[in-house]
Simulated assay, not measured.
Amino acid sequence: MSDRDERYYNAQLNMQQCSRRGLFRALWSGVSKPVKASTQIAAIRSVPRPPTAVEEALLNRLCDGCGKCEEVCPQHVISMLEEKPTLTLDGGSCTECGECQRVCPTLSLANTSANGVPSTGAVAALSGMCVRQMGAPCQSCEEACPHQAIDTVNRSVSIKTELCSGCAQCRVACPSHAIQMVMR
Score class of each variant (00 low, 15 high):
Ala122Asp: 03
Thr106Pro: 00
Cys94His: 03
Pro85Met: 03
Gly92Arg: 10
Leu81Trp: 00
Thr88Phe: 07
Lys68Asn: 10
Ser79Gly: 04
Leu107Pro: 00
Cys100Phe: 04
Leu87Asn: 01
Ala114Thr: 11
Leu126Pro: 02
Thr88Asn: 14
Met134Thr: 11
Met134Val: 05
Leu87Arg: 00
Val131Cys: 06
Glu71Leu: 13
Thr88His: 10
Ser79Thr: 09
Ala114Met: 12
Thr88Lys: 12
Ala114Asp: 15
Lys68Thr: 02
Asp64Cys: 01
Ser127His: 04
Cys97Ile: 06
Arg102Lys: 14
Thr120Val: 07
Glu99Ile: 01
Val103Cys: 05
Arg132Asn: 08
Ser127Lys: 07
Val117Gln: 03
Val72Phe: 05
Cys63Gly: 09
Cys73Pro: 06
Gly128Tyr: 02
Gly92Pro: 05
Val131Ala: 12
Ala124Ser: 13
Lys84Cys: 03
Pro146Asn: 08
Arg102Thr: 13
Gly65Phe: 13
Leu109Met: 07
Val123Asp: 00
Thr106Lys: 13
Arg102Gly: 05
His76Lys: 15
Cys63His: 10
Pro137Leu: 08
Glu82Gln: 11
Pro105Arg: 10
Gln133Pro: 00
Gln101Arg: 14
Pro118Trp: 04
Val117Phe: 14
Ile78Gln: 03
Thr88Val: 13
Cys141His: 02
Ser119Met: 02
Gln139Ser: 11
Val117Cys: 04
Thr95Asp: 12
Thr112Tyr: 11
Gln75Met: 15
Cys97Glu: 08
Glu99Ala: 15
Asp64Asn: 07
Ser140Pro: 00
Gln75Ala: 14
Val72Gly: 00
Gln101Ala: 14
Cys141Asn: 03
Val117Asp: 08
Glu143Asp: 13
Glu83Arg: 11
Leu62Cys: 11
Leu109Phe: 06
Ala136Thr: 08
Glu99Asn: 12
Cys130Ile: 01
Ser140Gly: 05
Val123Cys: 05
Thr88Leu: 10
Cys69Pro: 00
Val103Pro: 01
Cys97His: 08
Glu83Trp: 04
Asp90His: 05
Pro85Gln: 01
Pro137Val: 06
Ser113Val: 04
Glu70Gly: 06
